[in-house]
C-alpha cells in the first residue's frame, strides 16, 4: 500500500497543524480534568467537585435561558428585519448599513456602553422612563434578580440580530421575482408571500445561522463578563463564565478542565441533535 502512505505524506503538514492547534488542547484538557495540581491521577474527583458545587446547576440553567432566549429573539427580530430591508423604500441602502452597526461594534465597547445606559442612577434608560412618568422609581436593572438576565439577553440580541438579518436578507435576495409574481397571481397577499414563499425559501439559511448562534451563545463570555462578571449572586453566571472564573480567578485549572469536558459533551449532543433533526429534514428542493 505504497500509494496510500504517499497520500498521507501530502496531508501530513495540515494534520500536524490541526493536531497542535486542536487535538493537543483537547487532549490536554482531558488530561487536566483527571489529575490534580501536582499532575497525579485523581480519577473522577474533579468532576465530583464541580458537579457538587452549588453554582454548577444554576450556571447550567442560566446558560439554557441565555442561549434559548437569545436565539429566539435574534432569529425573530433578524428575520423580520431582513423581510423589511428586502422591501423597496427610499434610503434602503443607508438603513441596511446602519442595521449592521451593532454587529460591527466590538463586544467590550457595546457591553460597557450598555452597562452605563442601564445604570440605576445615571443611566439614560431609567432617565427616559422616569422623566415622562412611565415608572415612578428608577429600576436597578443590573441588580434586580428578575431583570438582570433578561437585560443581558436583550443586549446579546441587539448585538447579533443584524448578523441574522444580513444572512437572511442575502437568502431573500436570491429568490427569483417570478415566484412572488406567481404567488400574487395565485391570490397571495404580503403575509402569504412571507409565510409561503420567503420563509420556506430561506429556511436553509435560518437553520445554518441558528446553529452558529447556538455555538456562539454557548461560548459567549464578553457581554456578561464585562457587565456583571456573572453576578449578582450568580444570577447571570453561565457555564463558560464559571469555567473562566474557576481557571483564571480561582486557579482551579483541573476543576475548570473537568467542567469544560462536561460542557463539551453536552454541547456536542445539542449540536448533533440539532443537525440530525433540523438541518437535514425534508427531502425538498433547493
Amino acid at each position: 500500500m505504497v500509494r496510500q502512505s504517499t497520500g498521507l505524506l501530502f496531508v501530513l503538514p495540515a494534520l500536524v497543524v490541526l493536531a497542535m492547534l486542536i487535538a493537543y488542547p483537547v487532549f490536554y484538557t482531558g488530561l487536566l480534568s483527571v489529575t490534580d495540581q501536582q499532575g497525579a491521577f485523581v480519577g473522577t474527583n474533579n468532576f465530583a467537585a464541580v458537579l457538587g458545587a452549588r453554582a454548577t446547576p444554576q450556571a447550567f440553567w442560566n446558560t439554557l435561558w441565555w442561549v434559548g432566549g437569545s436565539i429566539v429573539f435574534q432569529v425573530i427580530l433578524g428575520v423580520a428585519t431582513a423581510v423589511l430591508l428586502n422591501q423597496n423604500f427610499p434610503g434602503r441602502g443607508i438603513v441596511r448599513s446602519v442595521t449592521l452597526i451593532p454587529w460591527v461594534i466590538p463586544g467590550i465597547v457595546a457591553a460597557t456602553t450598555w452597562a452605563w445606559m442601564f445604570h440605576t442612577e445615571f443611566g439614560i434608560i431609567n432617565y427616559m422612563m422616569t422623566a415622562p412618568g412611565l415608572i415612578e422609581a428608577p429600576i436597578g436593572w443590573l441588580s434586580n434578580r428578575d431583570t438582570v438576565l433578561p437585560v443581558m439577553i436583550a443586549i446579546n440580541v441587539w448585538k447579533l440580530f443584524p448578523f441574522v438579518a444580513i444572512m437572511v436578507l442575502a437568502g431573500l435576495q436570491s429568490i427569483p421575482n417570478d415566484l412572488y409574481e406567481a404567488a400574487r397571481v395565485d391570490g397571495a397577499n404580503f403575509w402569504h408571500e412571507v409565510w409561503h414563499i420567503m420563509l420556506p425559501q430561506v429556511r436553509p439559511v435560518i437553520v445554518a445561522v441558528t446553529l452558529l448562534l447556538v455555538i456562539w451563545g454557548l461560548n459567549s463570555i464578553t457581554i456578561i463578563y464585562a457587565i456583571t462578571r456573572g453576578g449578582p449572586a450568580n444570577l447571570t453566571l453561565i457555564t463558560p463564565i464559571q469555567i473562566f472564573r474557576l481557571a483564571f480567578e480561582s486557579f482551579q485549572f483541573n476543576q475548570a478542565a473537568a467542567l469544560s469536558v462536561i460542557f463539551f459533551a453536552v454541547t456536542i449532543v445539542v449540536v448533533f441533535i440539532y443537525i440530525r433533526y433540523l438541518a437535514s429534514s425534508p427531502a425538498e428542493a433547493k
Binding site: D178, E181, A183, R184, V185, A188, P200, Q201, R203
Partner: peptide, 19 residues
C-alpha cells in the same frame, strides 16, 4: 390586484414553488 382579476398565468421560467 392580480388576485382580484380572475386570471391565471404561466411564466416563462414556470415559477413553480420549489418547496
Amino acid at each position: 390586484h392580480p388576485k382580484e382579476r380572475d386570471i391565471a398565468m404561466v411564466f416563462q421560467s414556470y415559477a413553480l414553488y420549489p418547496h
